[in-house]
Amino acid sequence: MNPLLQARNLCVARGACTLLHHVSLSLQPADFLVIAGPNGSGKSTLLRALAGIWPAASGELLLDGKPLSASHRKDVARLLSYVPQDTRMDFGFTVREIVAMGRHPHVRRFASETRADRHAVDEAMSLCDVIHLRHRTVNTLSGGERQRVMIARCLAAQPRCILLDEPTASLDLAHALGIFQLARDLAAQGCAIAMATHDLNSGLRFAKSLLLLSEGRVALPAQDAATVPPAVLEAVFGVRAQQLLDADGNPHYLFHRPSSAATHG
């Protein structure tokens, strides 16, 4: 199968500063890739570059086999959607208005909302469990609700590939697990998902594969989430990782500061 999204030797620079060095990865339909790494390792930069928002300084980025930078933005947006980390809202748009904005890549300039648009918006709101909030204004929502609205907006575009930037960063346990589950369900329906996160345990549990970034470089190429060597986690995050196996034999980790190794080890 051809990869839906493929990056080869992607380098990204802002001004004189190179933020990403020679990153390669590929996403197939139904993939769920978690991208992890310490702060400043380039997770958000990678997602912005993959979404085509920040241009690559060098390297190749193919969406559905075609160079992404050569495609029209609306054509890209129909295939690939992106949920940024910053969900700041200044004006009181309603939830439905926000989610309907996701239809932008499908709507022609003079056209108004069609039945297909309304259907896609309703379905996206149902999937993300925000349909009961549709008349609320976004600035009255909790962090978890707002994050689900952002994901609903991206689903309304009916993309085949979704990039999520730390969607669970400010969420409580239940809501965070809900987002991971939703991402896994979407992948099961054939969507390709890449999610940056700091929640390694949930990432390893829900995702198919894990890619580690460190200082703008790939520290661990995407590989099966079940077979990630603890030593790599320790090296990348600068911690000591203690592996535990749950009842099903899936690995979980307890992380310790390296200095505490002597006292507890």
């Binding site: 933005r73 940024p84 300039r109």
Partner: peptide, 23 residues
Amino acid sequence: LLHARELDLLQQGEDVAAAFGVD
């Protein structure tokens, strides 16, 4: 008026606007 949708999306942040097809 013809670009009202783009103006709405720009209010969501430039990254979001770009991600949903705004130049």
